Simulated scan of single mutants.
Amino acid sequence: MGISEELDSAHHRRQLLEKLMDQYGESLTRLAMTYVKDQYIAEDIIQETFLKVYKNLDRFEGRSSYQTYLYRIVMNGCYDYLRSWHHRKVQITEKFTLTHEEGNTSEKHLLDKDKNLELAQNVLKLSIKLREVIILFYYQDFTVDEIAKTLDISQNTVKTRLFRARKKLENQLKEGGWEW
């Protein structure tokens, strides 16, 4: 490959990476947050993810979508962090930020915010296997098929985990006094 072809390839990779960062950066950070529960660590994992993607873009075979590819890398990065010595030695505090419209201070909004926070806290209490399917399905709008490909499990396993996660959440919320 000549110098001009290498420059074109590098330019193309850079443009694609910028597009992927713009398109998926926020949702990937939110996903990482649900695993590691720390904004700075989540951002580090996302930065590492995009470095890996940039270095390996030429090897991407297109057997999955870029979205599935990115989510898998982020989840692996989160798993690696959660298994790390650093994580086991440092107590992580649960943080879950909710966005809301500024200026809306109605009683309904405050009740909705409290319910959303309580629901989010209960989702974070689930085991990782149950939490990840709930987050991908409800918060990231993945289909069962996309979740199966991302997690490298069968669609039936995804459905089973979704069922178990919903049941567990329902029980947790009933114990907390939620009315259905």
Rank of each mutant, 00 (worst) to 15 (best):
Q47P: 07
S65H: 03
E101W: 12
I73W: 04
K37S: 10
K37W: 10
N56G: 15
Y79Q: 03
K89V: 15
T97I: 13
L98W: 10
E101S: 12
R63P: 01
R30I: 02
Y66G: 00
D80F: 01
G62R: 09
R83T: 07
A42K: 04
H100W: 08
L31C: 08
V74F: 02
M33G: 03
D44P: 12
E26A: 09
Q67K: 13
L28K: 01
T97A: 08
S64R: 01
I73D: 08
Y81Q: 04
V36F: 02
L98S: 07
H86P: 03
N76G: 01
N56C: 09
I46M: 00
Y40D: 13
A42C: 06
Y79M: 03
E26P: 05
L57Y: 12
D80N: 11
D38G: 01
I46E: 01
Q47I: 06
Y66T: 05
E43Q: 13
V53L: 11
M33I: 14
Y71V: 11
I73Y: 13
N76P: 02
T34P: 00
S84Q: 04
K52I: 12
R30N: 11
D58T: 15
T34H: 09
E102L: 15
K95H: 15
D58F: 10
M75H: 15
K89H: 14
